[in-house]
């Protein structure tokens, strides 16, 4: 049996700790210790984006990220986006643009689009495609996601100027 160690980190704004083993990955940590299932392991290779988690402000693939590595880090998941019960502009845009079908990849898209708009508030289609290269949708709602990103950008701009 391998050694268990206690890590402490900030999860969606709150300080937390958890006992992890070296072979646990970040998705497993979130699901088993914190009941957060928005990050999901699908391909297990960092290619599909279903396991997207934000660590210290940067997106990572939770399936390829050892749980031990978030010791001391700031971790944010999709569950942080609708604070106080209000959907984020990106979440609203995904619903309004019908930018999902089965919904399994959706949290990953939502987080990546949020990061994209933080970096590029008014992205063009090429930027959107490049930024979302690592997010796959087997239902292939790509045209709707493209619409949703543009809609979200407008919503954020409107909110900022309001």
């Amino acid at each position: 049996m391998t050694a268990t160690r206690t890590i402490t980190f900030t999860l969606n704004g709150a300080p937390v700790s958890a006992d992890v083993k070296p072979h646990h990955n970040l998705v497993e940590l979130l699901q088993t210790h914190f009941g957060l299932t928005g990050a999901r392991e699908t391909c297990g290779q960092g290619l599909c984006g279903c396991c997207t988690v934000i660590v210290n402000g940067r997106s990572v693939s939770g399936c390829l990220y050892l749980a031990s590595f978030v010791d001391g880090a700031d971790v944010r998941t999709v569950e942080a986006l609708d604070g106080a019960g209000k959907l984020s502009p990106v979440q609203e845009a995904f619903i309004e643009a019908s930018a999902f079908q089965c919904g399994y990849c959706t949290p990953g898209f939502i987080l990546m689009v949020t990061q994209l708009l933080d970096e590029h508030p008014d992205p063009d289609e090429e930027q959107i495609k490049h930024y979302l290269t690592g997010n796959l949708c087997r239902c292939a709602t790509y045209p709707e996601v493209m619409d949703a990103v543009k809609l979200a950008a407008r919503k954020r701009k409107a909110a900022a100027s309001a």
Partner: peptide, 12 residues
């Protein structure tokens, strides 16, 4: 860099 893997992998 832009065509290399994806944003999340490049972050790590």
């Amino acid at each position: 860099m832009r065509t290399l893997s994806n944003v999340r992998v490049r972050n790590v």
